[in-house]
C-alpha cells in the first residue's frame, strides 16, 4: 500500500511539471487558436538564458529579471514579425509558422549559448521528506507548489483584471473583440510573454532536475497528451491533465512496466490520450460551444 501511495504521489508531483508546460500551450491556443510548437524551444531558450547569466556571475534575482525582460521583448518581436503578418490565415499556416519559429529560437539559443549541458542549482535539495510514513521528494514538493502558485496567479489575472477579461473575450470572439476596440496585437504580445514566463518557470524546474540541455525542447511531446486529456482551452484542464499523466505513467511504470520490459513512460501518456479521444474528444475541460437549453 505504501509503495502504491508513494508512487502515486510522486507521479502527481511530477505531473505538476507537465501541467506547467501545458499551461503555456493553453494560453497561446486560447488567444490565437494555434498549437504553438515553439513553446518547447522557448522553454529551452529561457532556461538556457537564465543559467548562462548565472554562470556569468549575475545574481539569481538579476538573472531572473533579465530573462523575463528578454522574454517580453521576444514576445513583442514574434508578434510583429510572425503573428501580425499572418493574422487571419488558417490555423495550419500559423502552426507551420510556429514550427519554423521553434527552429529559429532553438538555433539562436544554441548559437549564442552553446549546446552543452548546463547544471542548474536552484538551492532546493532533493531530499526525501516523510508525511506519515509516506516518503516523497522535497524537490517535487517545491516544484508542485510553484506550479500551483503560478496557476493561481494566472487564474487571478484572467478573472480579475481588464487584460484577463480582454484575453477571454478575444478567445471567445476575435471579431467582436476588435469591434469594441480591443487591441488584438497587444493581447497577443501579452499572452506570448506570459506563456514565455510560464516556460521559464517550467524550464528552471525541469532543468534543475535533469540539467538544461537540448532535450528540454522535447517536452512539447509530453504536453500533447496532457492537452488532449485536459482540453486545449482550459488552464484547469492543463493542470488536471498533467496530474493524470504524471500519476498514470508512474503507476504504469511501476506496476505494468516489469511485464513489458520497462520503458513504458514515453508512450503510455499517448496510449491514455488516445483512450480519452475515444471517450471525450474535447478533453475533460475542453470548451464545447455553449448551447442554450
Amino acid at each position: 500500500m505504501n509503495l502504491f501511495l508513494e508512487t502515486f504521489i510522486g507521479g502527481l508531483l511530477a505531473g505538476t511539471m507537465y501541467s506547467l508546460v501545458a499551461i503555456g500551450f493553453v494560453l497561446i491556443y486560447k488567444a490565437s487558436g494555434v498549437f504553438n510548437f515553439a513553446q518547447g524551444s522557448i522553454l529551452l531558450f529561457s532556461g538556457l538564458t537564465f543559467v548562462t547569466l548565472l554562470e556569468k556571475g549575475v545574481p539569481f534575482a538579476g538573472a531572473l529579471a533579465i530573462t523575463i525582460v528578454i522574454l517580453v521583448v521576444g514576445a513583442v518581436v514574434i508578434e510583429r514579425t510572425v503573428l501580425r503578418p499572418l493574422a487571419n490565415r488558417s490555423p495550419m499556416t500559423l502552426f507551420m509558422a510556429t514550427l519554423g519559429l521553434s527552429y529559429v529560437v532553438e538555433g539562436t539559443a544554441q548559437g549564442l549559448m552553446g549546446a552543452q549541458v548546463h547544471a542548474l542549482d536552484l538551492g532546493i535539495e532533493d531530499v526525501p521528506v516523510f508525511i506519515g510514513d509516506v516518503m516523497i521528494s522535497q524537490f517535487d514538493l517545491v516544484a508542485a507548489l510553484t506550479a500551483v502558485l503560478l496557476a493561481a496567479v494566472l487564474a487571478l489575472l484572467f478573472n480579475r483584471t481588464r487584460i484577463g477579461v480582454s484575453l477571454r473575450a478575444v478567445a471567445d470572439d476575435t471579431r467582436a473583440a476588435l469591434s469594441i476596440g480591443i487591441n488584438l496585437n497587444r493581447i497577443w504580445q501579452i499572452v506570448w510573454a506570459v506563456a514565455g514566463i510560464t516556460g521559464l518557470v517550467a524550464g528552471m524546474l525541469w532543468g534543475a532536475r535533469q540539467g538544461i540541455q537540448f532535450s528540454l525542447s522535447l517536452v512539447v511531446l509530453k504536453a500533447l497528451p496532457v492537452l488532449i486529456i485536459g482540453g486545449f482551452t482550459s488552464i484547469g484542464g492543463a493542470i488536471v491533465g498533467g496530474l493524470i499523466v504524471g500519476a498514470a505513467e508512474t503507476l504504469a511504470e511501476t506496476y505494468i512496466g516489469r511485464f513489458v520490459g520497462g520503458g513504458i513512460t514515453p508512450w503510455f501518456p499517448y496510449f491514455l490520450a488516445i483512450a480519452f479521444l475515444y471517450i471525450r474528444p474535447a478533453g475533460l475541460f475542453g470548451e464545447r460551444a455553449l448551447e442554450r437549453v
Partner: peptide, 29 residues
C-alpha cells in the same frame, strides 16, 4: 472604435463564456 464607430455584428457575437456584466465591462475598457 476608439474614434467613435462601433459595429454590432450580424448574429450578435457576444462573448459566450463571459458573464453578461463582463461583456459590458469589456466594452468600456
Amino acid at each position: 472604435a476608439a474614434r467613435g464607430i462601433v459595429h454590432v455584428l450580424e448574429g450578435r457575437h457576444v462573448f459566450g463564456h463571459l458573464t453578461v456584466e463582463e461583456n459590458l465591462r469589456a466594452g468600456a475598457f
